[in-house]
């Protein structure tokens, strides 16, 4: 795969997601959680907590993080990294806004799930 290739794919508009909320995108077996923060930043993470696979899309979004609904781990939306004393990382996908349209690149991801 060419490193320079970007494979952006439209998944909807920013208005589809409530502020401080998330929606899911299905991709085969995988679910990807798309987050929108209070200040309209967009992030994409695999919908799986590094702890016990809790669905992060169902958590409470605050500042740049989401708190997992199952056991309250706090995961950074930008890096997928568990915060504080917890250790683990969720897969993060490149994502960007073109006007209101959300574009995601599923060919690149960082981290393992």
């Amino acid at each position: 795969m060419n490193v320079m290739t970007q494979n952006w794919c439209s998944i909807g508009t920013i208005d589809d997601i409530p502020r401080r909320g998330a929606r899911c995108v299905k991709h085969g077996e995988m679910t990807i959680a798309i987050f929108r923060t209070a200040d309209d930043q967009i992030f994409a993470l695999e919908d799986k907590c590094p702890h016990k696979n809790g669905p992060l899309s169902q958590g409470i979004v605050h500042d740049g993080c989401v708190t997992c609904p199952l056991h309250n781990w706090v995961i950074s939306l930008e890096s997928g990294q568990a915060q504080g004393a917890d250790e683990g990382k969720t897969m993060v996908f490149p994502i960007k806004l073109d006007e209101k349209t959300i574009l995601i690149d599923l060919s690149k991801s960082s981290g393992t799930s």
């Binding site: 494979n7 794919c9 998944i11 909807g12 589809d16 997601i17 409530p18 929606r23 899911c24 995108v25 299905k26 991709h27 085969g28 679910t31 798309i34 599923l106 060919s107």
Partner: peptide, 16 residues
């Protein structure tokens, strides 16, 4: 409504 439906379902090819 948005809570209960995925925002999009992507075919596997679309991402390749």
């Amino acid at each position: 409504k948005h809570e209960f439906k995925p925002m999009a379902t992507l075919s596997l090819e679309a991402a390749e």
